[in-house]
Nucleic acid binder design. Structure first.
Length: 1117
RNA sequence: AGAUCCGUAGCUCAGCCUGGUUAGAGCACUACACUGAUAAUGUAGGGGUCAGCAGUUCAAAUCUGCUCGGGUCUACCA
């Protein structure tokens, strides 16, 4: 690395400009690649990159999770690990297909008709990396180091082959199976949805649906005899509630709870006003009938009477009506008994069933049961063999043969403007036919398709499942070994999810995705699950040989070249008994793609066996909390299923990024933050620092651009100024850390202090970073830079840098400040990789202490415990407090700091406090411009003292007497306090009982010094002598004069080291002041000559403490 | 509907686990200073029923319960 004689001085704090410069260097010097290769042979730290889908634009929420990933990886690299970060792209799935469909203006039904599957998938493949450039750009600009030269891409054959291998392993273990089940299905998207898709945030929405209480007329038979007898042979209806009236044509049963109490109620239909008898759960009577109407006036009821009279006729258990038959509610051609019999031979529908899922929390306690449209309905329907009717097709509309409802969409899936809700029409029909008791809008939360935003419906589908429930306990057990940040997500959200896990529905009936590698004979008797390309190619040949003809003719020569549809579907395999086998049409859930990345990214087990072994499981992954049931789950599931292992040891889940008002960012609200603009304007470092330090990553972040500005100004501005200050004077003095490291015991107190403080910070930062708490780490650093380094060390030490010769004390100062800056750049490197590197390189270019290309190639600082001196840090705090108090006193009496004062009085409570203060006395005196500090020892009678109980100590001892003692102490006189101090204890009487107070059980502090201006903070009190003697005034004048001349020097643009000559015309008193301090003045302003002249032309007029004078400052030579 | 987290100054956050008597910081605002680091800095001021109510306790922002408000999650909900 090229050495430089001078530290580079910046011309202004322009983070985006620095970053562009640093980026160019990184590229040129291959800094990232080198940061990995430099650690060759070191212990690996394994990180998995969750693959983003590049068919959407990156958002600010991607910046936060990537910052988190990046800072951990950079930190671990600096800690000596080798951290490879293979990037990846998620390329399959619904979002891509929907995007293509939208672009082509087609729907799912058109695929294979208007466009061939081959062309369609070609389009998808093209669309997949549509925004890759934008992603690459944000990756680069935000400083995210990830290897995108050789990323894993989920649509590649090698990737898919690993997926097939995993699936075949599951198949062999009997964990992959097919089954009919009632699944969430999105008619708008044309596909079933997995439970984790249904569990994406925002899928459940509150919607108002038309709900109906329908009346099913009981058939008179033996089972219902007791009901009909009770009403003397009149009609009896079972009441059942539904929020989905569109399922009523598919009704085949009514389910009740065996032990629930039901009642038969005599009343009227509120719509038709006909007398009726209805059955419902006793517990829900109050929902439909008013108490005032009980046993009301039946005779005078008519349509004008609002209050419905009602009487309970009979009461019975649900089990007593099991098996009762009823008339079909909405009979049509398509759902006739004949059709039911054809579909399910021997079915016995329209009966009252009993099951345990029925509750009396809602509805009527009688559940309308349509086996096709509910998981419970399906289960109970199967048990009683009531058949199954699916009166809605896969597009979400009624089938033919349902009269006026035929072919109508059951929900507005097509965004039709004049859509008429078929549910309302069904309800109206029921009302007219005396088959509805109550129809109303009902608000409830209902699942929606995460992609199309349309309501989901439950639908019977054939699907392939992974039997995750088989290893549930093991998954729960292994989860307990994972370090979750925050803990609650792992235990609560993820833990609960595992406890309530259902089998993973893998099937997707789409086109662009990983095909399920299962082939099966037409009769379904024989099937095979293919686990590799080689196995498939063997099968292709074998089938061709055995079956002959044109079978697989296009694939005989080279084998299969693309594992996607439609090619895989061309392949015919042959079963053991010699029958042809075709592939089942399903694709698999894309989440399987991403969950399999630990293996598929290395094409395991076909290649890279050793690499895989070294990089499984991951030490660390991080994504948004929305991935809890997505990637976090699928990674965990596959690892447990196939490898009986966790997939990751530590996982950090970051919260959502909200706008500054706490609203979710959405395109609709227009409150989306553009990450490009943010980074270009304020810099990646400020953005990253803000995102990390403002709130813990797992808390939701209210993103406010003002916060970034504050970080930029406050943190980076301060650090920048500190560096500039250092560079300015080092360049003057030629400091290049050439001298031997001066031992700490030869350095002044303040140097030892800042280094102690620095090492304390280093220690804490290491601890926080090891604990994945970057927010705490960042905040500790911020405090140090602002409070300690800039506003105390540099401020107090400025003179050391610009005064005097280049000797020991000055070198101490340079070495100390240099060490602070150098350590800081390394400390902040993980969070703010650009600015840290720029400053680090500027430092290292002159001193060559590391001789490194980048700060990211050096080791992270480690605390030197020997340098940490707690007492020292404590007394410096005393000095800061004392200074602050004196300054506030000056302010109170309006005496500016430039005016020297004679004395400060500090009462000390102990000798150790005095010793502590004495060691920092000079600093305080210089800081507040006071000549001397006088200490008042504890036994003086001069100051007045204050006493209060030490609650922690006394509370335990006294308990209930605490209040009385506290009151007694408030009454203590100065004499009482003095006595207690002298004796070490005090006999007190509380409520007639003696209490002995020990000195340690109270806190005594000085309160006031009569005749002095005092201020206190905690136990520290200071008093200031505010008398300005003529001598002090003269010195004040001199200082004021120096200050003004310095300003002139600066205004005139003189160099720091320029010597000057001065002519002054001043009135008598002021002239004397200046003459008296002539030596001091000349030294301060680098004047070789200070001349008092009787007359001045073209001088500058200055106001020195309300007296005017004229001066000419000229550069010498 | 349940589960869970959260509610502290105008804003962003500490403090709560382990209770202790003037509840802190930064930003913003106002005034005055300081400055050969000047896109900084200091001092002072206003600004808080620590969401509300009740309980435990000598003592509650802190522990418990309930209520209200917000987030997230779960749900086969008829």
């Amino acid at each position: 690395m090229a050495m430089s004689a001078k530290y580079r001085e910046f011309t202004g704090l322009n983070l985006p400009a620095f970053e562009a410069e640093v980026l160019a260097q990184w590229t040129e010097k291959q800094a990232f690649e080198k940061s990995v290769s430099l650690r060759e042979g070191a212990t690996p730290f394994v990180f998995y990159e969750g693959p983003p889908s590049a068919n959407g634009m990156p958002g600010i929420h991607h910046v936060i999770s990537r910052t988190l990933k990046d800072l951990v990886c950079r930190y671990k690299t600096m800690k000596g690990f080798q951290v490879k970060r293979k990037g990846g792209w998620d390329t399959h799935g619904l979002p891509i297909e929907l995007g293509v469909e939208k672009e082509l203006g087609i729907t799912k039904e058109d695929i294979g008709k208007k466009i061939s599957v081959e062309d369609y998938n070609k389009k998808c493949r093209e669309a997949v990396l549509r925004y890759k450039d934008k992603w690459d750009e944000i990756t680069k600009k935000m400083g995210y180091w990830v290897d995108l030269n050789d990323p894993y891409i989920t649509f590649k054959n090698e990737y898919i082959e690993t997926l097939w291998w995993l699936l075949s392993e599951l198949y062999k273990k009997g964990l992959l199976y097919e089954s009919v089940s009632i699944q969430p299905y999105s008619p708008a998207a044309g596909t079933g949805l997995s439970s984790h898709e249904l569990n994406q945030p925002g899928t459940y929405k509150d919607v108002k649906d038309t709900s109906a209480v329908a009346m099913f007329r009981a058939v008179q038979d033996d089972k219902s005899k007791f009901l009909h007898d009770a009403v003397h042979g009149a009609e009896v209806f079972f009441m059942a509630w539904t929020t989905t009236p569109w399922t009523l044509p598919s009704n085949l049963g009514l389910t009740v709870g065996a032990n629930i109490d039901y009642v038969l109620v005599k009343t009227f239909n509120p719509y038709t006003h006909l007398p009726i008898n209805v059955v419902l759960a006793k517990a829900l009577l109050g929902k439909y009938f008013k108490e005032e109407g009980k046993d009301g006036d039946f005779d005078s009821y008519n349509e004008k009477v609002k209050l419905l009279p009602w009487s309970v006729i009979a009461e019975f258990k649900g089990s007593q009506i099991e098996g009762c038959e009823y008339e079909q509610l909405l009979p049509y051609e398509a759902n006739s008994l004949k059709v039911i019999e054809e579909l399910t031979p021997g079915a016995k529908p329209f009966r009252v069933l009993v099951d345990s899922f029925v509750t009396t929390e809602d509805g009527t306690g009688i559940v309308h049961t349509a086996p096709a449209f509910g998981a419970d309905d399906y289960k109970v329907g199967k048990k009683y063999n009531i058949g199954i009717l699916t009166m809605v097709d896969r597009e979400g509309k009624f089938v033919d043969g349902l009269g006026e409802f035929s072919n109508r969409y059951v929900k507005n899936y097509k965004d039709e403007k004049d859509y008429v809700d078929v549910n309302v029409d069904i309800s109206v029909k029921l009302k007219k036919e005396n088959r509805a008791f109550k129809v109303e809008k009902y608000e409830h939360s209902y699942p929606h398709c995460w992609r199309t935003d349309k309501p989901v419906l439950y639908y019977p589908l054939d699907a392939w499942f992974i039997k995750t429930t088989a290893i549930k306990d093991r998954m729960v057990e292994l989860n307990k070994t994972i370090n979750w940040k925050p803990k609650s997500t792992g235990e609560g959200r993820f833990g609960n999810w595992l406890e309530n896990m259902v089998d993973w529905n893998l099937s997707r009936s789409r086109y662009w995705g990983t095909p399920l590698p299962v082939w099966r004979t037409e009769d379904g008797e024989e099937e095979i699950c293919i686990g590799s390309i080689e196995e498939l190619n063997r099968g292709i040949k074998r089938a061709s040989e055995i079956l002959g003809g044109d079978v697989n003719k296009n694939y005989l020569h080279e084998g299969i070249l693309d594992l996607h549809k439609p090619y895989v579907d061309d392949i015919i395999l042959v079963s053991k008994s010699g029958k042809p086998m075709k592939r089942v049409p399903d694709l698999i859930d894309v989440w399987f793609d991403s969950g399999a990345m630990p293996y598929a990214q290395w094409h395991f087990p076909f290649e890279n066996k050793e690499t895989f072994k070294q990089s499984f499981p991951a030490d660390f992954i991080a994504e948004g909390v929305d991935q809890t049931r997505g990637w976090f789950y699928t990674l965990h599931a596959i690892a447990c299923l196939v490898f009986d292992s966790v997939a990751y040891k530590t996982v950090v889940s970051n919260g959502l990024v909200l706008d500054k008002n706490g609203n979710k960012m959405s395109k609709r609200l227009g409150n989306v933050v553009d990450p490009f603009k943010t980074i270009e304007t304020y810099g990646a470092d400020a953005t990253r620092w803000y995102l990390i330090t403002n709130a813990s990553p797992w808390d939701n972040l209210k993103f406010d651009i003002e916060g970034i500005k504050e970080v930029q100004r406050k943190f980076f501005g301060t650090l920048y100024n500190t560096y500039q200050f250092f560079a300015l004077y080092s360049n003057v003095d030629g400091f290049a850390f050439k001298e031997a490291y001066i031992p700490l015991n030869e350095r002044p107190e303040i140097d030892r202090w800042i280094l102690s403080s620095l090492n304390t910070v280093v220690k804490k930062v290491n601890e926080y970073m090891d604990d994945y708490e970057p927010t705490q780490a960042g905040r500790v650093i911020e405090d140090f830079v602002d409070e300690h380094l800039s506003n105390w060390y540099v401020r107090l030490c400025r003179r050391r840098f610009w005064k005097g010769e280049y000797e020991q004390d000055k070198i101490c100062a340079y070495q100390t400040l240099y060490e602070c800056l150098e350590t800081l750049t390394r400390l902040i490197a993980p969070i703010s990789p650009f600015f840290s590197d720029a400053v680090f390189q500027n430092l290292d270019a002159v001193t060559g202490r590391f001789n490194a290309v980048s700060v990211h190639h050096v080791d992270f600082p480690v605390a030197n415990e020997a340098v940490i001196d707690e007492l020292l840090e404590e007394r410096m705090q005393l000095a800061q407090d004392a200074s602050s108090l004196v300054l506030s006193l000056r302010k109170k009496v309006n005496i500016k700091v430039r005016q020297p004062l004679q004395k400060v009085l500090i009462p000390v409570l102990s000798t150790s406090m005095k010793e502590q203060l004495q060691k920092v006395e000079d600093l305080v005196k210089a800081e507040v411009n006071v000549k001397e500090i006088e200490y008042l020892s504890p036994d003086n009678t001069f100051i007045s003292k204050k006493i209060k109980p030490n609650f922690v100590a006394l509370g335990k001892k006294l308990g209930p007497k605490m209040k009385a003692v506290s009151a007694a102490l408030a009454q203590f006189t100065q004499e009482d306090i003095a006595l207690l101090e002298k004796e070490g204890q005090y006999n007190l009487s509380v409520d007639g009982e003696p209490v002995i107070l020990q000195i340690a059980e109270v806190e005594i502090s000085s309160e006031d010094i009569p005749g002095w201006t005092v201020a206190n903070k905690g136990s520290l009190t200071v008093a200031l002598d505010v008398t300005v003697t003529p001598e002090l005034e003269a010195e004040g004048n001199a200082r004021e004069f120096v200050n003004r001349v310095q300003k002139i020097r600066k205004d005139k643009g003189f160099d720091l080291t320029d010597r000057v000559e001065i002519k002054v015309l001043a009135p008598g008193g002021l002239k004397d002041s200046l003459a008296q301090f002539k030596t001091y003045i000349c030294a301060e302003i680098l004047a070789d000559k200070l001349e008092f002249v009787p007359e001045i032309q073209d001088g500058i007029e200055l106001d020195i403490n309300d007296v005017l004078l004229n001066v000419i400052v000229s550069k010498k030579g």
